[in-house]
Design a protein around this nucleic acid. Structure first.
Lengths: 216, 216
DNA sequence: ACCTGAACACCGTTCAAGT
DNA sequence: ACCTGAACACCGTTCAAGT
């Protein structure tokens, strides 16, 4: 060990093993490989080749880690259409992309719904684009966030629904005859997607009407 | 100890200390008193004056307990209107009641969305009424469940949103100017309710249009 | 049949100690 | 500044033992 030469105090300035980026992508990898139930601080540390306690030098607790993951997932959501297409078409594409992302991360849904966005740069950028698109489309300032939140609520509820088993509404016909009948009448394969498509089309039609009534 | 006489084997047939009803209402009481984070098997047992392991003679695990609580909450949801009012008015009242119930139990939302209803009598009864009301209102069999699920997705998403802090969208104006502007333009106190009301009105308008187009 | 008490495997998190 | 290893408080759940 040479005694001086290097700017840092002694030895070479060994780079830290961990960082927000490394931790987040390891966590996402773990989730995609083995699901959210496999995401424990111990398993994450193991994946990173480090002791569990080492994580706490970079992340204050597991909840903050979930917020990092949330921002990472939001990065995948496509909202580029707001800059080039009419507000309603862009909103539809955004809702689809948003739902699909969180259908794969439904465990995050209760986290998103409640976490301030300020610390999440990609999330802030997404809302900025959406808000700008709606505003440019003619929505008045004091209704933009209501539209965003309403659509988002539908999207997140649908993402949860997408994680439901196919037989969730199965019930003995003698116990609930009408329910059994209408449940049996659903032809399609992907019932959750059919409900989402119907709902989204309905919401968009309703919003178009509302905006039209607002600006004569 | 007399040897015969009693139908049971020996002593008096001491009634069990626990039952589904007692466990469920103790759990609900615990939740309303100290929140979901206080609902542990140990705390629940303590409330019932019993050892934690005793619970497992009546409930197979904590997840099943959550389903019992879910059915209990669903009992509070008002869907009586479906028998006496037009489908759209009844759907609106149901959605309001549904959202309010789960705004108080948002931790259950991810559970509901994924749990088969078959084992939950009040839940089945609720869906039966809703389905019958929509069907009587003129909705075709193969679309009834899509409408139910779409509205329910919006309701559950909104229930999650109702648990969000007021400052969830607060962001520095230089970082996201349009977002900051429209967030600031929301006048009202209860932003979550405003978004829910706008969304619900929009969904109902859209559904009325859709049904009208279906039945000329 | 139903309850107790002790135990188990696992969790997130803390902290003194090292470099 | 960053990591290790040992420890802590708490979880849900199991199970032999009692009545």
């Amino acid at each position: 060990m040479t005694s001086s030469e290097q700017p840092r105090r002694r030895g070479r300035p060994t780079a830290p093993l961990l960082s927000q980026e490394k931790i987040t992508s390891a966590a996402v990898e773990l989730i995609e490989l083995r699901g959210y139930s496999a995401l424990t601080m111990a398993a994450l540390a193991r994946q990173l080749g480090v002791a569990p306690s080492a994580l706490y030098n970079h992340v204050s607790n597991k909840h903050q880690l979930l917020r990092w993951i949330q921002d990472h997932v939001n990065r995948e959501i496509d909202c580029s259409d707001f800059e080039v297409r009419p507000w309603d078409a862009a909103l539809e594409a955004w809702a689809h992309s948003y739902r699909d992302a969180y259908a794969r991360h439904s465990l995050l849904v209760p986290v998103i719904a409640v976490t301030p966005i300020a610390g999440s740069p990609h999330t802030v950028a997404m809302y900025e684009k959406v808000a700008a698109g709606l505003r440019a489309g003619g929505w008045p300032d004091d209704q933009v966030m209501d539209v965003v939140v309403a659509v988002e609520s539908f999207v997140l509820g649908s993402a949860l629904d997408a994680a439901a088993p196919d037989d969730i509404f199965d019930v003995p016909a003698d116990q609930a005859p009408v329910l059994a009948r209408v449940v049996g009448a659903r032809v399609g394969r992907d019932a959750a997607r059919a409900a989402f498509d119907l709902g989204l089309a309905t919401v968009l039609a309703g919003l178009r009407d509302r905006l039209r009534a607002l600006t004569p």
